[in-house]
Design a binder for these strands. Structure first.
Lengths: 231, 231
DNA sequence: GCAACAAAATCGTCATACTTTTACTTCCCG
DNA sequence: CGGGAAGTAAAAGTATGACGATTTTGTTGC
């Protein structure tokens, strides 16, 4: 949980309810109502609402109440919003958005990583590429997922761009969701694994162009598969 | 201001102070101290701190105080964090990060826009391309900036990806900052303007590949110029 | 029918008391 | 002399009552 204590718990109830549309845009909540519904004090309600306000999900107005804002205004990059949407009815749309984002960002990150990666980064990437090959062949999906997440996280971090690096958890959530919801082939595709090896090799060799191309093939393929599955 | 009232004002003081490093990572604040320093009540301090906590900029701990977290843990995609960093000592680093992000995202957005843009979008883009040409020739930097921001915003929106669309304000802030801080040539470069026209034409014609290439040239050029100026 | 004014509802702020957690300190026993 | 256990205090966490500010709504009077 990002936020501690009772406000955090309240947030964990309200956020998903709003994100899933259970509490629709335009709905009006009142502080007193929330106090009673969740058996907490004004203090707690107000702090939770303030956080939702900072995510632009609600707008408190005097004499009116706390109105839920339309989805288009939410902070769609907020990690909590992403998590809530992935967990709820919006999962498909959120996965599509994130898929496109990956297609845009990860190839660029790979290209930068080929230039900026530290020796440790390069070693780790090589090791993970091997691990991916092994666990894929063994059809050990759980370990494969773990290493896959680590692989993409390292590329993002090694890019040297702090904003790319912070997409680590989001990408991790996408990959996890894909495995959990059986949007993955039963055994990872040998071609995809091969591409991961290529990315690792290109980054080790400092070949930005190749790293970018291989990574683009990976994420574009993932997006295509995702779209195919969701339709 | 994202957040209303006194908590918003307190946030507008604390946020920039932390973002600029004036209050460094590891520093410990106490609620009572903040109450007195800013002449507000406990309620107000707590709500502002809660929002900072949701941005992962601080972590309140009992018996210790409110500790400022290291920059690497902040929510770098939060619009407020971006704004505060752009306003403070971190401006250069933030501009570089955003520059790379633009290079990754905007070409992808242009490609998607070539496929998904509505007729209105296409018309607006054409009109703006003309406007850009006119205002550039007239060296009317202020109007040029306005139209430039609108141009990129429409491309991002027309991509049909909600996450891309939400980068509108961020891109706007980058462009504004560039003009304000004289990181721009006195008169916009004819070649850059030409590229905007190409993007508009490609999107109108539904040519994703060309739109992407032209847009990449624009943002890559902007990034290069930025890096040259900052060094 | 319109305008000015009054009233009510709801959030916003403050002050205060109490609770809970946790770091620190002291003291006793081995 | 060292180490652990118990106690203490400091800070955030929660609850509550009172009042202020603002905005919507309704009502009254011209």
């Amino acid at each position: 949980m990002e936020i501690q204590g009772l406000p955090g718990q309240l947030l964990a109830e309200l956020g998903p309810a709003i994100a899933s549309g259970e509490i629709p845009a335009g709905a009006v909540l009142r502080t007193e109502e929330l106090e009673q519904r969740f058996r907490v004090s004004r203090t707690v309600v107000r702090e939770a609402v303030r956080v939702l306000e900072s995510m632009r999900m609600v707008a408190p107005r005097r004499r009116v109440g706390i109105t839920v804002r339309p989805k288009a205004e939410w902070d769609v990059f907020d990690p909590l919003v992403i998590r809530w949407r992935l967990a709820g009815a919006d999962r498909a749309a959120q996965l599509r958005s994130l898929g496109s984002l990956r297609v845009a960002v990860e190839p660029a990150a790979a290209a930068l990583a080929a230039v900026h990666a530290s020796d440790d980064d390069r070693r780790e990437l090589s090791a993970l590429a091997v691990e991916l090959t092994v666990t894929a062949r063994a059809a050990d999906l759980e370990t494969f997922l773990e290493h896959d997440i680590a692989f993409h996280a390292i590329v993002l971090r090694a890019s040297g761009n702090e904003m790319f690096a912070h997409l680590k958890d989001t990408v991790g959530a996408v990959l996890t969701g894909r495995t959990e919801h059986r949007l993955m082939p039963h055994q990872p595709r040998p071609y995809a694994v091969q591409l991961h090896r290529e990315v690792a090799e290109a980054i080790c060799a400092g070949d930005a162009e190749l790293a970018e191309r291989a990574m683009r093939t990976i994420v574009a393929g993932a997006l295509e598969e995702l779209n195919a599955t969701l339709d």
